[in-house]
Computed example of a mutant assay.
Amino acid sequence: MRIRIGGGETLQARLWDNPAARDLIDQLPLTLDFSDYGRQEVLAEPPGPLTMQGMPAGESAPAGTIGWYAPGRSVVLYYANVGRFTGIVRIGAMDGDLSGLQGWDSVRPVTIELAG
């Protein structure tokens, strides 16, 4: 499923066909307050949780991954490579230049919507 992620600059992205990604699609469009975590990702909590049923217990997250971090109930946009960690599942991928996600020193609103 093609989506757009906009928070200043717009990224084209896609969500995989898996249970957690379908839960996120059901909540779109969303504007969430994303913040930087660990200088490797930006994250925000959606209104409802995404299922972990049928998902792996944990995965790695290469740069460009859209993930769900179940313990923190967070949608995560990874701009750096993150090793395997329990609770991370991949739900999609972003295309293009990820530098606009880096260096945030405050919370920023980001809209995630289906790409018509």
Rank of each mutant, 00 (worst) to 15 (best):
I66G: 14
T31D: 09
P46K: 04
V82H: 00
N81P: 10
S35H: 13
P71V: 02
T51I: 07
Y78S: 01
G72P: 15
F34S: 08
G54Y: 09
W68E: 04
R73N: 15
A44S: 08
T65V: 06
P62K: 04
A57W: 02
V75C: 12
L50Y: 15
V75T: 11
G72A: 11
L43H: 15
D33K: 12
L28K: 00
M52A: 13
L28E: 09
D36T: 01
S74E: 15
D36Q: 03
G83Q: 02
A80Y: 14
P71R: 02
P62G: 11
M52F: 04
E41Q: 07
G64R: 00
Q40F: 13
Y79L: 04
G67A: 07
E45M: 11
A57T: 06
R84M: 12
R39N: 11
G54K: 03
I66D: 14
M52N: 10
W68Q: 03
W68H: 10
A61V: 10
G72D: 13
L30S: 11
V76C: 14
P49R: 04
A44K: 04
T31Q: 05
E41I: 07
V75K: 06
P71W: 06
L32Q: 01
P29Q: 09
M55Y: 13
L43E: 15
Y79N: 04
Q53Y: 12
D36E: 02
T65P: 14
G48F: 02
L43K: 14
N81G: 10
T31I: 01
A70E: 14
P29G: 04
A44L: 03
T51R: 06
L30E: 09
V42S: 08
E45W: 11
G83N: 07
G58V: 05
A63Q: 07
F34A: 07
Q40M: 05
L77Q: 06
L28I: 03
L77N: 08
G38Q: 01
M52S: 13
G54F: 05
E45R: 13
F34R: 00
G54Q: 03
L32D: 08
A70T: 10
Y37G: 12
A80M: 00
E45I: 08
E59A: 07
R73D: 15
G38N: 00
E41N: 09
P49N: 08
M52H: 11
A61I: 05
L50I: 12
E41S: 06
P29S: 02
Y79M: 06
L77A: 03
P56H: 06
P46D: 05
P46C: 05
T31H: 11
M52E: 13
A57C: 03
L32P: 09
D36G: 06
